[in-house]
Structures are given as structure tokens and as C-alpha cells.
Design a protein around this nucleic acid. Sequence first.
DNA 1: GTTTATGCAAACTGTTTGCATTGCT
DNA 2: AGCAATGCAAACAGTTTGCATAAAC
Lengths: 173, 173
Amino acid sequence: MERLFLLKMVFINKSKVMEKEFERGHHWCRGRVKGFGFRLTLGRDAVLDVLSRTEDHLSAEDIYIRVHETYPAIGLTSVYRTLDMLVNIGLVYKFDFGDGRARFELAEGPKGKDHHHHLVCTGCGRIVNYRDFIDEEVALLKKAEEGLSEKHNFAITNHLIQFYGLCEDCRNK
Amino acid sequence: MERLFLLKMVFINKSKVMEKEFERGHHWCRGRVKGFGFRLTLGRDAVLDVLSRTEDHLSAEDIYIRVHETYPAIGLTSVYRTLDMLVNIGLVYKFDFGDGRARFELAEGPKGKDHHHHLVCTGCGRIVNYRDFIDEEVALLKKAEEGLSEKHNFAITNHLIQFYGLCEDCRNK
DNA sequence: GTTTATGCAAACTGTTTGCATTGCT
DNA sequence: AGCAATGCAAACAGTTTGCATAAAC
């Protein structure tokens, strides 16, 4: 009960503070969830909140831990189920960076898509978002998509680009 | 597997590989394995043989089953350990297509690199190799690599491109 | 004869599922 | 009220590890 109250207060305070233009992340997501006929529960809202507040690439357990701080009632299972649902409705992307656990990030911010790709350090696993060369990539990929659709009869919906290498720290070892 | 050791062996082995002209099958791989100081066992040879005979993207268990046909003494554990070693020396690529199991393919055929990327059907999991637009992609990626190396201080060693979509069969359902 | 590689079984890890209960709407 | 969503524990799948044995070199 009191944690419900606490959670509400957090939201209220945050809203007041951030009401301006630095929107409190995921309001717009809620309509999307409901729009698909899913119920907007505290757990789901908390998961969306965590995702909307970070640039990191969180694993299910990372998310569970962070949500747990403000909403301790949540179980890891629900995090998995929520993420699965969010991926299915296209609100969240699921990535694999080769370390055996899935990573998640919001597909879209309040300001629209934030198209970027990932730079993965094969030494320490660090992941960097980059937004350079995106225009050229998109142009090329559009072309490739058209060609591949025709040649292989695929209806292409998505693509993935990742670069692998060693970050500065790992190179100096 | 110590990095230092591997690096040394790479240089020593370079000439050996070059002097051995292109032979049939996976003969050329053997020198590479030995060159790195590993023993060429029946099991390892059989794994390489399976990989060299297919265009498919086999999982560890797929490989185990195929090797088992000609060399029933092999255990799944050895397949995993062999693949791990082959990935480490760069003879094999390891991929993840999102179905929860790793897939492997020979990095290089007797005729040299066969640079290609993958088209993944999200309906049935079918994977198609494509070799179109590779030149343009490589040109763009080279450029991106240079820029990213500089900007994010990464020494980029590799990249991954995948397209996702629905194949013809899955679209008609 | 050394040292590396192997097979087996058991451990591990991330994820999924069955089921009784809770709690949105 | 009614049904979707949840938590817990147990199941699951792919992969890894410990250890005694076998086999390359």
C-alpha cells in the first residue's frame, strides 16, 4: 500500500519538475500499450519508465533490478513477459551482443525514432550507440532492401548493423 | 587461450598457408589448426569436414549429428570445444539469428573469403546468404569504420549486417 | 612419455511455463 | 464481475565445466 503511494508521489513530483518540455519519458507509450488491448499495470509502467530513462542496453535482469527499486513487488517473470509483449507490439527492440543475454531498448522516444547502431567492444562488452553515417547507411540499405526483396522474394521489415572492435581501454592491455 | 600465443602463431603461420596452394576440401584448414599449435584430431577434422561441405548455418547440435554419421565416437562437448577453438583462431564465424542457438560457418573457403551477409525469415527461421550490394556495403562500412575508429577510439575488427523479413512462403499465410 | 583432447555426467545460465492468486478495467 | 496479468517454483534448452581416460605429438 505505502509503496503504491510512494510510487505515485514520485510520479507526481517528477511530472511537476519535468513538465516543461523534458517530457517524463513514456507517457506516450501508455496509449500504445492500451491501444493494443493490453492492461497498463504498475509493473508494465515501471518497466517502461526504466527503459525511458536510460541510454544503456539493459538485460532483463538489469531491468528487474532497477524496477525492483521503486516497485519491489515485481517478479523477474513479469519483466520477461512484459518485455516480450513490448517487443511484439514494436515498442521495444531486442538485441543480442553475443554475451548470452538479450538486451532491450525503447524503439522510439517521445521525439520519434532515434535511429542508431551499435559499436560493441569484444574485450569488455561495452556498447556505444553511434549515429554517424546513418543517412548514408539508410540510403544504401533502402537500395539493398529493394533489390533483395525482388531477388529473394523477401518482404524485408528490418535490418541490423553492428560493428565489433576493441575500445581504447581494452586496446591498451 | 592466451592472446599472445595466438598472435605469434598467426605470423609464423602466414607463410605456411600461402605456400600451400588451394587444395580440395578442407585440407587447407588443417595447417591452420596445427599452425596455431593445436592437435589435429579425428573429431576436429570431422567437424571441419562437415563445415566445409555445406552452405547451411549449422548449430552445434546439427554439426554433432552430422559428424556422428561418420565418426560416432564424438561427443557433443567436443563439438562445442572444437567450435570454440575454431572461432578463436578465426577459422569459423559464430552467428546468432535470434532463435536461441548459435550458428556456425567456415570463415573462409579454399578459394578465399566468401564475403556475404544474411537474410533471416522471422516466420520460419530460414536463412539466405546474399552477395549482392556487398561492394557498396564494404565501401560504406570502410568509411564508417574509419570515422568510428577516430570518434569513439575503437579499433574496429569486424561488422555484422543482417536483414529480417518474411520469405515468400511465410508471407502467403 | 608428455601433454593435450575427449567423453560423460553434472552444473550453470538465461528464459519459459503451469497454476493458483491478484488486481485492472 | 470477469478476465488479463502476476508471482512463485519448477521445467527447459543451450552451453560449460570437472575429472578420469584416451590419444596426438
